[in-house]
Simulated scan of single mutants.
Amino acid sequence: MAGRRDAGERPAGWEAGQRRYIGELLAADVLLIAVPMYNYSMPSTLKAWVDHVHVPGVTAGFAPGELPLRGRPVVLVSSRGAAYGPADNPADWDHGTAALEVVFGASMGMTPHRIVAQLTLAPDLEVLADRRDEAVASLEAAILRARELAIELG
Results as ranks from 00 to 15, higher is better:
Gly3His: 13
Gly3Thr: 09
Arg4Thr: 14
Arg4Tyr: 15
Asp6Gly: 15
Asp6Asn: 15
Asp6Ala: 15
Asp6Met: 15
Ala7Met: 13
Gly8Val: 09
Gly8Tyr: 14
Gly8Lys: 11
Arg10Leu: 15
Arg10Pro: 07
Ala12Glu: 13
Trp14Met: 06
Trp14Gln: 04
Gly17Ser: 08
Gly17Val: 02
Gln18Asn: 01
Arg19Tyr: 09
Arg20Glu: 12
Arg20Cys: 06
Tyr21Pro: 00
Ile22Cys: 10
Ala27Cys: 04
Ala27Asn: 09
Asp29Met: 02
Val30Ser: 01
Leu32Cys: 12
Ile33Tyr: 08
Ala34Asp: 13
Val35Tyr: 11
Val35Gly: 03
Val35Pro: 04
Val35Leu: 04
Val35Ser: 03
Pro36Lys: 09
Met37Phe: 10
Ser41Phe: 08
Ser41Ala: 11
Met42Tyr: 06
Met42Cys: 08
Met42Ala: 10
Pro43Arg: 04
Pro43Trp: 05
Pro43Ile: 04
Ser44Trp: 15
Ser44Glu: 12
Thr45Gly: 11
Leu46Ser: 04
Lys47Thr: 04
Lys47Gly: 00
Ala48Gln: 12
Val50Gln: 01
Val50Gly: 02
Asp51Arg: 11
Asp51Asn: 12
Asp51Ala: 03
Val53Pro: 07
His54Gln: 11
Gly57Trp: 13
Val58Cys: 12
Ala60Thr: 04
Ala60Asp: 05
Phe62Cys: 10
Ala63His: 12
Pro64Val: 07
Pro64Asp: 06
Glu66Ser: 06
Glu66Gln: 14
Leu67Gly: 03
Pro68Gln: 05
Leu69Met: 03
Leu69Phe: 05
Gly71Glu: 07
Gly71Cys: 00
Pro73Asn: 09
Val74His: 11
Val74Ala: 10
Val75Cys: 09
Leu76Phe: 13
Leu76Cys: 11
Ser78Asn: 12
Ser79Gln: 04
Arg80Tyr: 02
Gly81Glu: 07
Gly81Ala: 05
Ala82Phe: 12
Ala83Val: 03
Ala83Gly: 09
Tyr84Val: 01
Gly85Tyr: 03
Gly85Arg: 03
Gly85Lys: 03
Asp88Met: 06
Asp88Trp: 06
Asn89Gly: 10
Asn89Asp: 13
Ala91Gln: 11
Ala91Ile: 06
Asp92Glu: 13
Asp92Leu: 15
Asp92Arg: 15
Asp92Ala: 13
Trp93Met: 11
Asp94Trp: 08
Asp94Gln: 07
His95Arg: 14
Gly96Ser: 11
Gly96Met: 00
Ala98Leu: 08
Ala99Pro: 06
Leu100Lys: 03
Glu101Ala: 05
Val103Ser: 02
Gly105Arg: 06
Met108Tyr: 07
Gly109Phe: 08
His113Pro: 00
Val116Tyr: 02
Ala117Cys: 08
Gln118Gly: 07
Thr120Cys: 10
Ala122Phe: 04
Asp124Cys: 01
Asp124Lys: 14
Asp124Gln: 14
Glu126His: 13
Leu128Val: 02
Leu128Lys: 03
Asp130Arg: 12
Asp130Asn: 11
Arg131Leu: 09
Arg132Leu: 04
Glu134Cys: 00
Ala135Trp: 09
Val136Asp: 11
Val136Tyr: 09
Ala137Glu: 12
Glu140Ile: 00
Glu140His: 05
Glu140Leu: 00
Ala142Cys: 01
Ala142Tyr: 01
Leu144Ala: 14
Leu144Ile: 05
Leu144Arg: 14
Arg147Pro: 01
Arg147Asn: 11
Arg147Tyr: 08
Leu149Cys: 02
Leu149His: 10
Ile151His: 13
Ile151Asp: 15
Ile151Ser: 13
Glu152Ser: 10
Leu153Thr: 03
